[in-house]
């Protein structure tokens, strides 16, 4: 034992370390490095090329005075809140329907989930067509006799964001349903039996017993939806390209246009940093609850 050489700490697991280089590089260089780089450069007056002339919070001041950005934020808020509430409600509702030991469960699940396999571009273009006032839903309702019916979200500044919302819910609610259904199936069947012996009606069992038990599933769904909301870009580009006018602009699109079209890197960096802040506001409490909380409990 005594003459066995103690292996060098760095060389221990050398193969594993070598194998992990791509992961370490991605984590450090891209996720940490690039993020910091962008945050730092959001305090500069970079235009066409990144520079290091620091101008403090100038970019942010300009950002919050830009009409297009304010509309983007407003859209994101409306879209975000609606899609959060609707996705969770619809997803849970559909999951409870599928949980009733129904026939054709697989078929219906397949139907509800297939839009999730499609890209946002395909989704956006499809709904652009369905919502086309001259050929789509509006025309059909009118041809049924309701002449004054107006539903042209993609051409009406006031409701355009809801047109995008319809497409987004169609595309994404299947995912939430599948997550919720997995959560429901994870509930101990004996809980249901106990509730029946106690004489508790089904809807009450869902509300007072099952939903509280599914808290982690709801949190997961919430985090996933939020991360998706902030990233929303392709859907808008395909469905409205920000129009009519700038009525359906979103922050992600603002960033990319400042970056590659308007040659205003400083604005792009400031705007993307704001997006990051939004995500952190959601993610930090979640991470605290999920990881910090666990450590305290056990």
């Amino acid at each position: 034992m005594a003459d066995a050489k103690r292996p060098n700490q760095l060389l221990r697991n050398l193969n594993a370390k070598v194998a992990a280089i791509p992961m370490v590089a991605t984590a450090l260089v891209v996720f940490v490095g690039c993020t910091i780089w962008t945050i730092v450069h959001s305090f500069t007056k970079s235009k066409l090329l990144p520079k290091t002339d620091f101008v403090g919070l100038d970019q942010y001041e300009r950002l919050w005075k830009t009409n297009k950005w304010l509309i983007s934020i407003e859209n994101l808020a409306i879209y975000g809140i609606c899609s959060l509430v609707l996705s969770i409600c619809i997803g849970f509702f559909l999951a409870t329907l599928l949980d009733q030991k129904i026939r054709f469960e697989n078929t219906i699940r397949t139907i509800i989930l297939y839009p999730f396999a499609l890209s946002f571009v395909v989704t956006g273009l499809t709904w652009q067509w369905i919502l086309n006032p001259d050929f789509g839903v509006q025309k059909i309702v009118r041809s049924l006799g309701w002449e004054s019916f107006a539903f042209d979200p993609l051409y009406n500044q006031d409701i355009v964001i809801y047109g995008i919302l319809i497409a987004a819910i169609w595309q994404g609610s299947g995912l939430i349903m599948v997550i919720m259904l997995a959560g429901l199936r994870g509930i101990d069947q004996e809980i249901w039996k106990a509730a029946r012996v106690d004489g508790i009606p089904k809807w009450k069992t869902y509300i007072f017993i099952v939903i509280p038990m599914m808290r982690p599933v709801f949190v997961t769904a919430l985090v996933l939806i939020t991360a998706g909301i902030v990233k929303v870009y392709d859907l808008v580009v395909a469905q409205t390209n920000g129009g009519p006018g700038i009525a359906s602009e979103v922050p992600a699109k603002y960033v990319i246009e400042s970056m590659f079209k308007n040659q205003n890197l400083g604005q792009a960096f400031a705007a993307s940093t704001m997006m990051l802040v939004t995500v952190l506001i959601i993610l930090v409490p979640y991470a605290y609850l999920e990881y910090g909380g666990k450590r305290r409990a056990k």
């Binding site: 101990d188 004996e190 809980i191 039996k193 106990a194 029946r196 012996v197 106690d198 004489g199 508790i200 007072f208 017993i209 509280p212 038990m213």
Partner: peptide, 20 residues
């Protein structure tokens, strides 16, 4: 009759307590 109308009480293997 429904389980709750039968005049029975039941104890389960997994306890089946309402955790919240």
């Amino acid at each position: 009759a429904e389980p709750s109308e039968r005049g029975i009480g039941m104890v389960f293997q997994s306890y089946a307590l309402y955790p919240q």
